[in-house]
Amino acid sequence: MKRLIQYCTIFLLMLLLCYCGTARRGEPVFAPVPLADQEIARGEVVYMNYCHKCHPGGEAGLGPAINDKPLPGFMIKLQVRNGLGVMPAFKEEVIPDEELDDMVAYLKALRKAKEEE
């Protein structure tokens, strides 16, 4: 039980910390997202089709920022498949598993694109 409370506390603290930094990534503020990796390049296209309008560039817009949320890949997939709150679910017939894998690869690369050029 103690561990459960610890996990929840850590989760809440991480959420709070998210609001301290910037969610901006890639150009023009930082170096571009590396797109030489084909998986990341394919994932960018998937992201643009389904996610970009509410989270433009991974930043907040209609929805919250996602660049600054330290979610592991399986949690991202869980949220995409099931939705959360007002975010709709994207089932396999909309985003196939392979495309979702690519999209998660892109999101992880985007999240890291915060190095000065």
């Binding site: 910037t22 150009e27 296209v45």
Partner: peptide, 16 residues
Amino acid sequence: ANGTVKDFAANKGKKV
């Protein structure tokens, strides 16, 4: 060709 969108000119700062 693929519908990808990137910021080109935007104000500096924590948020656009």
